[in-house]
């Protein structure tokens, strides 16, 4: 068995810190939990962390500043805990290069799914280089803005996406021209959706095709790969 991955949890609430550490440890992670930016900086040199779960609302130095500092130190994946509905925090955080966010109060299992998905993504070096910090990803006339989690059509009109559809599209764009297996897709949607995930993937893909004006039967953009899986067949331009 591979050695457990090490997660740094930064949250000022002691109870949440301890409960989250226990929960993640039970799911076979190693956890170091600290209460603020100072402690985080102190713990930083002593361990090799694989991922940071960072509360944005910290006493003293803010979570955003800490995230910026961490970004300057390494490529470590960061998942932010944002206040429910505080869109600006989320946007700034994602623009700073955080990999994902979860709104507080979060469902622990959803957080777990996000941690796993981000770690998996971090394991594919090419993927990280392509999207980290990009303000816009353009493909076939369409524009995906990761920081604002939005999709613009070739006329610059915003096309609404559900949370699941957005995650799916981002995953496809990040891995353009490479096959996304059903396993990876399952990972993405878990925690987002209730019900049988297998069907949910097909539903989400067909909705995405409809939104991208990609005719289902002769799909040009999102192609179905025989043996299970999908591929976004287009080149991506970063802006």
């Amino acid at each position: 068995m591979e050695t457990a991955q090490h997660i740094l949890v930064v949250d000022d609430d002691r109870e949440i810190r301890e409960l989250l550490a226990r929960f993640l440890e039970r799911n076979r992670f190693r956890v170091t939990a600290v209460r603020d930016a100072r402690e985080a900086r102190r713990a930083w040199p002593h361990a090799h962390f694989h991922l940071v779960v960072l509360d944005l609302m910290l006493p003293g130095e803010s979570g955003l500043e800490l995230a910026r500092w961490m970004r300057s130190q390494s490529d470590i994946p960061i998942i932010m805990l944002t206040a429910m509905g505080e869109d600006t925090d989320r946007i700034v955080g994602l623009e700073l290069g955080a990999d994902d966010y979860v709104a507080k109060p979060f469902n622990p299992r959803e957080l777990l799914a996000r941690i796993r998905a981000v770690l998996r993504r971090a394991g594919e070096p090419a993927v990280r280089r392509e999207t980290a910090g990009a303000a816009a990803l353009c493909f076939a006339g369409w524009t995906l803005e990761p920081a604002r989690r939005r999709l613009l059509n070739p006329d610059g009109v915003e096309v609404a996406l559900t949370g699941g559809e957005y995650d799916l599209l981002l995953a496809l764009v990040e891995r353009a021209n490479r096959v996304l297996t059903r396993d990876m897709l399952l990972d993405l949607l878990r925690g987002r959706q209730a019900g049988p995930f297998d069907r949910a993937i097909d539903v989400a893909i067909s909705r995405l095709r409809r939104k991208l004006d990609d005719d289902g039967r002769r799909a040009q953009l999102i192609k179905t790969v025989r043996g299970g899986g999908y591929v976004l067949a287009t080149s991506i331009e970063r802006r």
Partner: peptide, 17 residues
């Protein structure tokens, strides 16, 4: 509403146990 978020988060984590 803001103040309720912390206790709800705790309770959700506790529910896992």
């Amino acid at each position: 509403g803001h103040d309720l978020r912390t206790p709800i988060t705790r309770l959700k984590l506790r529910a896992e146990f």
